[in-house]
C-alpha cells in the first residue's frame, strides 16, 4: 500500500503550520512570563499581548503593589522593547512626559531632550493623578503616535504601547479620566490579588525585579510588526461575527441601565482585539467566543451607566448582556 497521506484538513487548533507570522514567539512570551515570572497573571499578560498585537493601549485598574510595574517591565524585556516610566503626580507637566528643548552651551543651540514617552513600552503610573492638561497630552500622543514640541513633530517609536495604571479606590486629589479619553484605551483590565498558593510562593521568593532584568528578549520590533501585520491581514473576520459584534454594541446602546453604550470605535477595537485573540489561539478566523471573552475587557470601561444605576459595576452589566446574546453558530 502507498504511504498514508494526511487527513486533508490541517489541524489548525494545535500546530503552528498556519502561516501566522511569529505566533510561536508570541506564545513563548506568554508562557514564559505567565508561568515563570508572573505567576497567576496569565490573563493580564494575554490581554497585554492582545493590546500590543491590536495596536492599542492597555489600562490597568488596580491597587498599587499587585505587580503592574513588574508586568510592564517583564513585557518590555521579553519583547525586546525599550521601557519608559512616567510616575504621574498632580504637578507633572506635559513636557515632563514628552521631553523639552534645553540650551546646549557647547553647541550654542537648543537641543531636544526626549521625554520618557519616547520608548516602545511606556508605563504611566497613576494616570488619574496627572492634571487633565497632562493627561490629554499623553492621550494625544497615544492616539497620534507622535509628539509635537515647540512646533516640531517627533515620531514615536514603533511599536508603541502605553500601559497606564490607575487606582480606582483613591479619590482624593485625582482627576478621573473622562469617558472620551477612556475610549482610547483598547483594553482595561485589573490584575487582582494572586491566588493564595502563588502569593505564598511570591512571599517566599521575594521580589523578582532582578530576575526580570535577566529575561532574554524573545521578540524584536520587526517580529512584532510582522505579527501585527498577520493579525491585520490574515485573520478572517466573518460576516457572522461582524453581525454578532454589531448586535452586541447595539444591545449595550439599548440597555436600560446604560446611558451611553459602546461607540463605533469601541466596536472596531473589539473586532481588532478579537482578531488578536484568534491569532494567539492559532486560528486564522475569529469565533464568537473570542468576542465574548474580550467584550468585558474591551467594552466595559467605555460604558456610561445611568445615574440611578451608577453603583452597579460596568463589567457586570456588560457580562449579563453578553450572556443573553445568542451567538451565530451556523
Amino acid at each position: 500500500m502507498s504511504v498514508l497521506k494526511g487527513r486533508g484538513v490541517p489541524d489548525r487548533s494545535e500546530n503552528d503550520g498556519t502561516g501566522l507570522a511569529c505566533r510561536g514567539e508570541v506564545l513563548h512570551v506568554l508562557h514564559l512570563l505567565s508561568r515563570r515570572y508572573l505567576h497567576g497573571k496569565e490573563e493580564a499578560v494575554r490581554l497585554s499581548l492582545i493590546a500590543l498585537l491590536a495596536e492599542g493601549h492597555l489600562l490597568l485598574e488596580d491597587i498599587p503593589g499587585v505587580g503592574k510595574t513588574t508586568l510592564a517591565l517583564a513585557l518590555s524585556h521579553a519583547l525586546g522593547l525599550s521601557f519608559g516610566r512616567i510616575q504621574c503626580t498632580s504637578d507633572i507637566l506635559p513636557s515632563d512626559i514628552t521631553g523639552l528643548s534645553i540650551f546646549d552651551r557647547d553647541e550654542s543651540r537648543f537641543r531636544f531632550v526626549h521625554g520618557p514617552i519616547f520608548h516602545n513600552l511606556v508605563l504611566t503610573d497613576e494616570i488619574n493623578r496627572a492634571m487633565p492638561k497632562t493627561q490629554s497630552a499623553l492621550l494625544e500622543a497615544m492616539e497620534e503616535r507622535r509628539v509635537t514640541v515647540e512646533g516640531k513633530t517627533y515620531r514615536l517609536p514603533d511599536p508603541f504601547l502605553v500601559v497606564a495604571t490607575q487606582n480606582p479606590s483613591e479619590q482624593v486629589g485625582t482627576f478621573p479620566l473622562p469617558e472620551s479619553q477612556l475610549d482610547r484605551f483598547l483594553i482595561s483590565a485589573g490584575l487582582g490579588y494572586p491566588p493564595a498558593e502563588i502569593e505564598k510562593a511570591i512571599i517566599r521568593g521575594g521580589s523578582i525585579r532582578e530576575e526580570i532584568e535577566k529575561i532574554p528578549p524573545i521578540l524584536g520590533a520587526e517580529q512584532i510588526a510582522a505579527a501585527r501585520r498577520a493579525v491585520r491581514e490574515q485573520i478572517h473576520l466573518s460576516e457572522k461575527v461582524i453581525d454578532y459584534i454589531h448586535a452586541l454594541v447595539c444591545a449595550t446602546r439599548e440597555h436600560r441601565f446604560i446611558a451611553s453604550g459602546i461607540s463605533p470605535r469601541g466596536a472596531i477595537s473589539l473586532a481588532d482585539a478579537s482578531k488578536a485573540a484568534a491569532f494567539l489561539e492559532g486560528r486564522d478566523y475569529v469565533v464568537p467566543e473570542d468576542v465574548k471573552a474580550l467584550a468585558v475587557p474591551v467594552g466595559a470601561h467605555r460604558l456610561i451607566l445611568r445615574a440611578e444605576h451608577e453603583p452597579l459595576k460596568k463589567k457586570e452589566v456588560l457580562r449579563s448582556i453578553v450572556a443573553d446574546l445568542p451567538v451565530p453558530r451556523g
Binding site: E239, R283, Y285, R329
Partner: peptide, 18 residues
C-alpha cells in the same frame, strides 16, 4: 468546533471532506 467553525467563520460552506 474547529472543523465546523473553520468553515462557517470563513463564510464558506463545508467541503465534502470536512
Amino acid at each position: 468546533a474547529a472543523i465546523f467553525g473553520g468553515a462557517i467563520y470563513h463564510d464558506r460552506p463545508l467541503s465534502e471532506e470536512e
